[in-house]
Amino acid sequence: MNLSGLENERLLAALRGVLAAKNLVSAAEIAERIAITDQASPAQGAAMVARAWTDAGFRARLLACGTRAAEEFGIMMRGAPPLGVLENVPGLHHLVVCTLCSCYPRAVLGYPPFWYKSVAYRARAVRDPRGVLAEWGTTLPEGTRIRVVDSTADYRWMVLPLRPAGTEGWDEAALAALVREGDMVGVTLPRLP
């Protein structure tokens, strides 16, 4: 099969045409979904993390139901899979992977980074998480257990990292600027610049 760009465009146009003809998905709905997906970025997840670090009520709501907390934050979650938030605590660190494909909390983190979709990451995260973290230069405190979360079904997972020491008194915007996408997958930890 020819999968050149031109052929992809023709296939996509044909699929859109059939979906619209059968009243399954309209062109407007597809455009809306593309806009939502393009708008999503790790900055949204980082802002939620910073809010959780500074607002105990929001933290509790975020952990209870990520979807509702994200909506409260103004993030469009309609049609998105339910969002679960994994709370790192002293002694327990979460690492998210999707061994079967590349399930990712796109609504709050945007498109998955290339390494998240790689066969190597997907195979090794569940079998050698400590080796993976070492290659990222991530050192966990002694005695920390790793809980790898394999995103195999209907939920999408993001990690709520521990607030780094030395950020006492920082405002939400400064805290959000510390949080990178890897921190919310669990391969890295937020650190001061």
Binding site: V126, R127, I146, R147, V149, D150, T152, A153, Y155
Partner: peptide, 16 residues
Amino acid sequence: LWPEVVAADEVVVEIF
């Protein structure tokens, strides 16, 4: 799950 693992780590999976 894995014969070579010695760390007390865990894997959590969504299963029907």
